[in-house]
C-alpha cells in the first residue's frame, strides 16, 4: 500500500522521493506550472505551481510529498496568486504574442488563457533586450525570457555543455551564453542539443522554422493546457550525453 495525500479533495498516491507536483501529474491531476519540466530536477523559481498545504503556501514542484498532506490547488485564493505571477512575467519582459513564432505553443501564454489573464495589470517595464541572431541556425530572442532556467538545466545536465547561464541580479537578471564574445555562434551549441527544445516561451528558436503550424492547429489552440496534464506526467530523466554538470543552475 502506498501513501497518499489529498489534492483538492482527491486521494493522490505517491512514492517516496516524489514531490507533490510529480505525484499529482502521475495521478493525472494538473497543477499549473511553468519552470517545472518532468525530465529535469525541480527548480521552483516561477512559483506558478504555488499551492496551499495544510493552510500554508508552498511550492508544489519542490515540496516532498508526505502522507496526509491536505493540498489545495484549484481554489480562488491560489489561482489569484498564480494570475498575478503570470501578469508579473508579462509586465517584466517584452511579450508581443502577435509576432511571436511560439504563439499557440507557448506555456506562458497558455497559462494566461487558463487563468483568465486579460491584462498584465502592472506597468510594463519594456526592458531593452537585444536579440542574438549570430548563429546561422538558431535565434535567441531574450525579450521573451522568463528566467525559468530550463535551457540552463538541459544544457548542463543533458548536453554537458553549459551553453546557457544567468547573470545580473534582481530585476536585471538575464540569460547569457557561454562564449568569450558573448554570442551564441561562438558557443558549443548544436542543433541536436536538448537545450534547444525545452524553452517554454519563444526565446530559443530554430531559424527558418517559424509559424510551421497554422493557427487553429497549434498545441494550445486545440485544448487548454490544463487538459493536457497527462502529457506532462513524470518521464524518465533525460539521459546525460556529455560531462554532466549540475552546478550552473541556481538554488540547487
Amino acid at each position: 500500500m502506498s501513501d497518499t495525500f489529498t489534492l483538492d479533495g482527491d486521494e493522490i498516491p505517491f512514492e517516496s522521493g516524489q514531490t507533490v507536483m510529480q505525484a499529482a501529474l502521475a495521478a493525472g491531476h494538473y497543477v499549473p506550472h511553468l519552470c517545472y519540466h518532468p525530465e529535469f530536477r525541480p527548480h521552483g523559481s516561477c512559483k506558478v505551481c504555488t499551492v496551499k498545504v495544510n493552510g500554508r503556501f508552498a511550492t508544489s514542484c519542490t515540496l516532498p510529498a508526505q502522507a496526509g498532506l491536505n493540498v489545495e490547488s484549484n481554489i480562488d485564493e491560489v489561482n489569484a496568486i498564480r494570475r498575478t505571477l503570470v501578469q508579473m512575467l508579462f509586465a517584466e519582459g517584452n511579450h508581443f504574442c502577435p509576432t511571436c513564432e511560439k504563439s499557440g505553443n507557448c506555456v506562458l501564454q497558455a497559462l494566461g488563457y487558463d487563468l483568465g489573464v486579460m491584462t498584465a495589470g502592472f506597468r510594463h517595464l519594456f526592458p531593452d533586450r537585444p536579440v542574438d541572431a549570430s548563429h546561422p541556425d538558431i535565434l535567441l530572442d531574450f525579450n521573451r525570457c522568463i528566467l525559468c532556467e530550463l535551457c540552463v538545466r538541459a544544457s548542463c545536465e543533458v548536453d554537458g555543455k553549459c551553453v546557457f547561464a544567468l547573470a545580473g541580479r534582481g530585476i536585471t537578471k538575464h540569460l547569457i551564453v557561454n562564449s568569450e564574445s558573448g554570442r551564441l555562434v561562438d558557443t558549443e551549441v548544436d542543433l541536436a542539443d536538448k537545450a534547444l527544445s525545452v524553452c517554454p516561451v519563444g526565446v530559443i528558436l530554430v531559424k527558418r522554422k517559424g509559424f510551421a503550424v497554422p493557427i487553429g492547429e497549434r498545441r494550445y489552440d486545440q485544448s487548454p493546457i490544463s487538459a493536457q496534464a497527462l502529457a506532462d506526467a513524470p518521464r524518465e530523466p533525460a539521459a546525460p550525453a556529455g560531462r554532466p554538470c549540475s552546478s550552473c543552475e541556481e538554488g540547487s
Partner: peptide, 12 residues
Amino acid sequence: AVTGGLPAQRNH
C-alpha cells in the same frame, strides 16, 4: 490597447 502591442516595439 492592452499591452501597447506592435507600436510599443519602438520603446527600446
